[in-house]
Write a protein that binds this DNA or RNA. Sequence first.
DNA 1: AGGTCATTTGGGAGCGCTCCCAGACGTGAT
DNA 2: ATCACGTCTGGGAGCGCTCCCAAATGACCT
Lengths: 345, 345
Amino acid sequence: MTVSGRRGRRPTLEQVAAYAGVGRGTVSRVINGAANVSDQTRTAVQRAIAELGYVPNRAARALAAGSTDAIALVIPEAETRLFAEPYFSGIIRGVSAELADTDMQLLLTLIRNLKERDRFAQYVTAHRVDGVLLLSVHADDPLPDLLQEIGMPAVLSGRRGGEEPVPYVDCDNTGGAQAAVEHLIGRGRRSVATITGPPDMYVARCRLQGYREAVRAAGLAEDDGLVAEGDFTEEGGRRAMRELLAARPELDAVFCASDVMAAGARAVLREAGRRVPDDVALVGFDDSAVARHMDPPLTSVRQPIEEMGRAMVRVLLEEIAGRKEGRDGRSNRVLATELVRRSSS
Amino acid sequence: MTVSGRRGRRPTLEQVAAYAGVGRGTVSRVINGAANVSDQTRTAVQRAIAELGYVPNRAARALAAGSTDAIALVIPEAETRLFAEPYFSGIIRGVSAELADTDMQLLLTLIRNLKERDRFAQYVTAHRVDGVLLLSVHADDPLPDLLQEIGMPAVLSGRRGGEEPVPYVDCDNTGGAQAAVEHLIGRGRRSVATITGPPDMYVARCRLQGYREAVRAAGLAEDDGLVAEGDFTEEGGRRAMRELLAARPELDAVFCASDVMAAGARAVLREAGRRVPDDVALVGFDDSAVARHMDPPLTSVRQPIEEMGRAMVRVLLEEIAGRKEGRDGRSNRVLATELVRRSSS
DNA sequence: AGGTCATTTGGGAGCGCTCCCAGACGTGAT
DNA sequence: ATCACGTCTGGGAGCGCTCCCAAATGACCT
């Protein structure tokens, strides 16, 4: 063995220093990109690192520096089912991509009950991550406030309401819904109904508002008989569609606040003998696999999910960096949606 | 005494010891459940921990003990699209559930290119996790062998071939396919075709084998004209279905090695004027959202995905514990599948 | 010549744990 | 009383880093 004291273990910073003929501090400076190191020394250290195959020990670094180089992605368990596809994996993909050239680690935490939430709360209170990404929290979730309180950098995906104690990244739900309904109206539909999400969800209210604005802007009558409440499930979509058909048999288009509800609605329309899109045009929201595989394929509003994941990381990293430097940069981000036209409308 | 005071910071083990009037070692023993601590002392320490709200510092523990209390879940990027639903989220759910009462952390790593794979290789070589869960590796992936080489505990989901250098958890693909085809034959179908996955994938070969065994067992003719090669995509399913229809127009059932291919097949059948299930019965594999939302809903073979995630963790933890104690317990696990009957067959 | 200042460097002092050894304190046998 | 042998317990010695202070160096001034 060319290096003394190496015997099988991973080389330490100390050994790199010895090998390069410099002090520990200098090696540390090179690794962390500190400015005041002469080029000559830097090169020597870098060669030593390469030759020894040195990789810093994360635990030691975390202990000494008091930071963990890790962020947590927190997902309420329910969401992994509801948003299974493509939301969940899309966000993860974006987050991971944006993290790839950082050397931050991604910790995944599913929270399926109160006990686990408390455990996670304790976890972050103990500062075992540098920041937290919170996926689709519910309106009554105390986590955002807790994080705000203990000064843990955090970013939300979506909003629970208009304002939030921590930064959020969201897509333009109102605008997306509006575009969808404008599209329907633009295709000559005159009696456009909507199936909404549960009204206690902000995202559902936004999509409903988008619908209303489009209807109003087109000068069509605002008719509550054309609005039915769903719950983002297929069964809810069925129920709502039956209500609509009963109340306004003459309707010629339906904007559904989710693809899954659109699938339910489509089934009811089929039973009722209405053809899609000939008799009734259908538009969904989410652009999920369900939309692509429906018959006919469903026009749907696509959220830039992967990009949202990336944006969340960017905002969080800014937040973490800002926190360190004492400044306080709250920056939200709202991304645009896109209407994907298929043959259902 | 620099110990008392420290306002604002998290309490340390040292402070707990002082508060309880014992030594550091004793507190450590209580926390780690070492046997030789008197009940009285244990109680006192536990009270001190509770009263101070002490949470061990993971970095310090990892540094001192040389283990990280974290495992990595590694997913090749391509898979996050292909298996997006429900495989990906199902595994995560199972893994997370099984990990919940451990205090292991779950590190998520997507690998989207060679550079990232090398980085991850370096990462595990530096022993920054205690174990690795590898999702659906490709046949030419060197990661399993690398992990084996450096002695890092690892578990695969699925197999690349018959044997593996590291333990795996898989579902009974052959049995599932067999059950699906038996089901078709049991419903009176006599000309059962199959659309396979790419033959270089072990899972595809298994499902094909299951098909063959069922056909043979039923005493039906083994006819290569009834076997068409797909690639697990919808378009591949379409192409294969057209081939089958051209070669054996009289077929009355098709077993597809994936739901997505079944969706493609279904579209072609519709164009060809064949009714499902009246003229042609259809069965898929995966029991994905696509299956539930097809028209008619698709009979499909369900894999116990969440349970597979749990099993992977159990095997990995055993592996890690075994490694520590010097024993070498290679234990694979193959879980049963279940046929979910819907109206397509 | 001496003084000042910026730049670069070495290494001590921890960070909060676990590991392990030696000591304290029983208990029972001699 | 002495010894042996068990069970508990305290605390020293690290783990591999970062932080920071002081020292060395050299450039430039007075």
